[in-house]
Design a protein around this nucleic acid. Structure first.
Lengths: 207, 207
DNA sequence: AATAACTTGCACACCGGTGTGCATGTTATT
DNA sequence: AATAACATGCACACCGGTGTGCAAGTTATT
């Protein structure tokens, strides 16, 4: 009985796997309900070949969500500021920096059975936001007339809506970032002049 | 040749037509992609009978959108205030009053081929909001650092997001109304204390 | 009581999508 | 050059949904 050395996976196969994920992200951003067929041909593969890399549609989505949340979490991990307003502003800025991933993940929040996975991956971010909102409420800078829990959700949903809007309007990078920050601070409780000031300051620092 | 007086539509048939629309609104609010089957049985009819009242799924949606936008437009037709902030607050209050219709219509804004019809039906409201936002921007009460057109969209989307959130949280009537008003004024540019004040005043008047 | 209006249930064709089996190529690796 | 890994294209079964035709029932109206 001769030895049968188990040959390694071919390198181009792994490349194709990446191509599929990249194509899926790109296509799904345009149409969240895109078919496997659309994804496969966008990746330059046949539908049949795709099933050699992923067992199901959901598996692709799961992978995308995992990577997306990881990316976002990484971008936000080193974001912190003692001033709650500045903290929120920094979060907004960071989110715009990862807009491609943010939009994809945001779509999954409501839909399908990925909901749980998404929520789990986003939890650290939510915790940070919750903290900032609570601190700001205590100071009186942010609104304290509404439960922090609710304010957090308000800020979250506003941010997502504005991010989408910024993309739809085709705003340039600077305007978009500012818009997101300013809107988030607005629902959090700041007047537009104060929000502007914070946005300005943070923008200067980040540059 | 004897006369053949064309007999009138039966009264119960018209009732069933209404039942279908009512059921559709109810079911679609829970699941925007509910099947015709689900709607029919929610209305207490067979799927086949439903097709005796509407030629297609889309026809039902079109009717719902038409009624919804009409209802909303009616509720907002007599809303006006010289003070832009109060005006926006009143719009928010009115929208919460028609929450059932608002949510249904809001879902259709993005989706399918109804988009155009929805936009048309909502145009008067948008015009009123645009007016208020522009006036507020000129006064300096609302933010003037962003194009009015964009501010309008921000307010719109925030309002929708908050309305959904209020429903999801199961807030009581008063809290929900206040939340919507306060969030809308927040993105428009008011500080949370100012927004609170306006909400309070308007709430008092409306009562 | 007659009759037209309406409802029902069944069958059917159609659509777009998913996931699998299989035979046949093509290409990277050894 | 041999061979295992991969890709392709086809067929297939399956699913859930839409819209129609038709025969047989039920019910409001006259």
């Amino acid at each position: 009985m001769t030895e049968t050395p188990p040959r390694n996976r071919r390198r181009d196969a792994q490349q194709n796997r990446e191509a599929i994920l990249e194509a899926a992200a790109r296509v799904l951003r345009g149409d969240p309900e895109a078919s496997i067929d659309a994804i496969a041909s966008a990746a330059g593969l046949s539908r049949r070949a795709l099933y050699g890399h992923f067992p199901s549609r959901e598996a692709i989505l799961a992978e995308l969500v995992a990577r997306g949340t990881a990316r976002i979490a990484a971008a936000l991990s080193d974001v912190h500021d003692d001033d709650p307003a500045r903290h929120v502003a920094l979060i907004g800025t960071a989110l715009w920096g990862e807009i491609a991933h943010v939009r994809l993940v945001a779509q999954m929040i409501v839909r399908g059975p990925l909901e749980g996975a998404v929520a789990a991956g986003l939890e650290p971010i939510r915790a940070a936001l919750r903290d900032a909102v609570t601190r700001g409420g205590a100071t009186g800078v942010f609104r304290s007339d509404v439960e922090p829990r609710i304010v957090v959700r308000l800020v979250e949903e506003t941010a997502i809506a504005v991010l989408d809007e910024a993309v739809a309007e085709g705003l340039d990078d600077a305007s978009a970032r500012r818009l997101v920050v300013v809107a988030a601070l607005g629902v959090a409780g700041l007047s537009w002049r104060d929000a502007d000031e914070v946005a300005e300051a943070v923008d200067g620092d980040a540059r």
